[in-house]
Amino acid sequence: MKLDFPIAAVLFDMDGLMLDSERAVLRAWRQAAREHGHDFDDSVLHAMVGLHDRLCRAMLLERFGPDLPIDAIFARTEALYLGRIEAGIPLKPGLTELLDWLDAVRLPKAVATSSTRQRAQGNLRSSGLLPRFPVSVCGDEIEQPKPAPDIYLKAADLLGVAPAHCIVLEDSEPGVQAALAAGMTPIQIPDIKPPSTALRALGHRIVGSLGQAHSLLREAVWQRTCCLV
């Protein structure tokens, strides 16, 4: 479980990892689908967690057929979601303490989210996180979305660090797969959807909170500092 390599940067997913926003997204999906005569049950909603919009579209059309009013449902979902987050998005417990510590030990950090730049900027701004992340990569800025490694490789490149020395904090299965494909070390903090048996078999680190992830990082940095003394 210990992190036994030099950590050069920590890369953060956004929804469900830093922001308690996934539930609002899924409620918006469910309502929008019902308004257009369809039922997105939990299996459908959970399958979309962590996926880029393009992959969500493909999955929904495959499941419900080409007659699904996909554009109307997407537009209504976005409107409902924006309405629900106008008052601000709650931060996940332990996030502020983790960010403060990373700043204190001068570990670079970045956001790598499947959300579009417009949505990500809005969410980070309304939650007060925007000034804390000078580097971010969004789902509409890369060729292949999660679970492909593109978004994390681009974030590492912008920070000027080697992928092998990056920690990735993720809540979703596609995000963990993307981190592993990028040659990085993911720490998963599951949100709505628990890790599947197949995902657990990958052998990555899974913890129950950002506080626990913080403890792993702090121990790794402390041990390396002691070794250099």
Rank of each mutant, 00 (worst) to 15 (best):
L3C: 07
D4H: 14
F5E: 06
F5T: 10
P6T: 12
I7S: 10
A9N: 03
L11W: 09
F12T: 03
L17D: 08
M18D: 02
S21M: 02
L26P: 06
A28Y: 05
A28R: 14
R30A: 10
Q31L: 15
A33H: 12
E35I: 08
E35P: 08
H38V: 13
H38C: 05
F40N: 03
D41C: 08
G50I: 01
L51I: 10
R54K: 13
C56T: 15
L61D: 05
E62I: 11
R63G: 11
D67I: 14
P69F: 01
D71Q: 15
D71Y: 11
A72M: 09
E78P: 09
E78R: 14
Y81T: 01
R84H: 04
R84Y: 03
G88K: 05
G88M: 03
E97C: 09
D100S: 09
V105E: 04
V105R: 14
L107I: 13
L107K: 13
P108D: 10
A110W: 00
V111E: 04
S115H: 06
S115P: 01
R117I: 02
A120D: 04
A120N: 04
A120T: 01
N123R: 09
R125P: 02
S127G: 00
G128C: 02
P131M: 09
P134T: 10
C138Q: 04
E143D: 08
P145V: 05
K146Q: 07
P149V: 07
I151W: 05
Y152K: 09
L153P: 09
A155K: 06
A155R: 13
D157L: 14
L158R: 13
L158A: 06
A164C: 07
I167Q: 05
L169D: 05
G175E: 02
Q177I: 15
Q177V: 14
A181R: 11
M184A: 05
P186M: 04
Q188A: 13
K193F: 10
L199E: 02
A201R: 06
L202R: 15
G203Q: 07
H204C: 06
H204P: 10
R205I: 15
R205H: 15
I206H: 00
I206V: 13
G208R: 12
Q212K: 15
R218S: 10
A220W: 01
Q223S: 13
Q223Y: 04
T225E: 14
